[in-house]
Design a protein around this nucleic acid. Sequence first.
DNA 1: TTGCAAAAACTAACGTCATTAGTTATTATA
DNA 2: TATAATAACTAATGACGTTAGTTTTTGCAA
Lengths: 188, 188
Amino acid sequence: MVRRMGLDRETLLVAAAELADEAGLDNLTLSALAQKLGVRSPSLYNHVNGLPDLRSALAAYCIQHLVDLMRDAVIGKSGEEAILSLSTSYLTFARQRPGLYEAFYKIEASDSPETAKLGEQLLSIFIRVLEPYGLGEQNTLHTIRGLRSLLHGFASLEQNNGFQMKLDFDESLHFVMKAFLKGLESGA
Amino acid sequence: MVRRMGLDRETLLVAAAELADEAGLDNLTLSALAQKLGVRSPSLYNHVNGLPDLRSALAAYCIQHLVDLMRDAVIGKSGEEAILSLSTSYLTFARQRPGLYEAFYKIEASDSPETAKLGEQLLSIFIRVLEPYGLGEQNTLHTIRGLRSLLHGFASLEQNNGFQMKLDFDESLHFVMKAFLKGLESGA
DNA sequence: TTGCAAAAACTAACGTCATTAGTTATTATA
DNA sequence: TATAATAACTAATGACGTTAGTTTTTGCAA
């Protein structure tokens, strides 16, 4: 007697994200996922094309969350205030969903066009939030790389115990962001 | 007739680092390493305590390189010049030894005291190079977190194809570093 | 309502990997 | 030269991803 478990791609992804958050992306295995869902692991192949596909899907799932979150973070704000809000949102997300976030930044070059589209949406949020600084096209792009590096570096080091000193993370982030933004204002 | 392969921990690490650089840290397997060394994989256990130990040793090996490299980068320089030199060295290293660098930032909290000692050496380089800025203790530490985040974020995004636009990496790094340092100068 | 095709679960099997236990051959030392 | 330590080995186990082939359920059309 074999029961039908009504699985679909979405519930699979949600469960996978939970597992990744709990145990780290490296420990997200198809076995563990199948067990969590009350199913044998080959059954997962009905919804997902193996582990690489699952991780790629998780990355897209994560970007989707991030885009929504950051659009939300800058509503009704502009300039420095918007960027600071966006930054804390980013880091809060990375802390709350560490496994999901891990999937996000390990995107392969070969990833889906869907992911690319979401990436552009993310990019455009940065571009628009930087408009008040009047940096020009090139420097805006340099700046965006800087912001992304800063945010991702912070998240990554925080997750991997890279910061060993006892010093509040949020204070550090705030200090660093303020310095960077001040540097931008005082002209390149 | 079984030949004795004069292996030791050092040659093991060197070969492992090469493999990691070629194929990524995730694809550094004991099988592959054994094959590269002309040995069966259980033999590796005479020199290394399993895969976790190997990766941890690689991390230490990497920090060692980084400390040497960065000491070298700041010789005869100070202030902004020193920091910029240090930054480009850091990124050049991350590009040239991607697998090794990967091992470095995935250090576990449970890693060896040797690693911790090297980490402190790295920290002290940053502290001394920031002295001219007169930031005070707290802000110096915040700043170091910022620098490390920036550098690591840059390296990580570069490695993981996070930067998709066609724009020179080094120019971006230079622009961003200058902005951050200018922000520091103009007082927190 | 019945019959059939698609979908979603399953079992069985294979290859790869890390790891452990136990064995043999080589080296170094007493 | 004998013996102890060392470094290689073989054999075996268990976890995992993946494929192939099978069964069962479901939805839809006749």
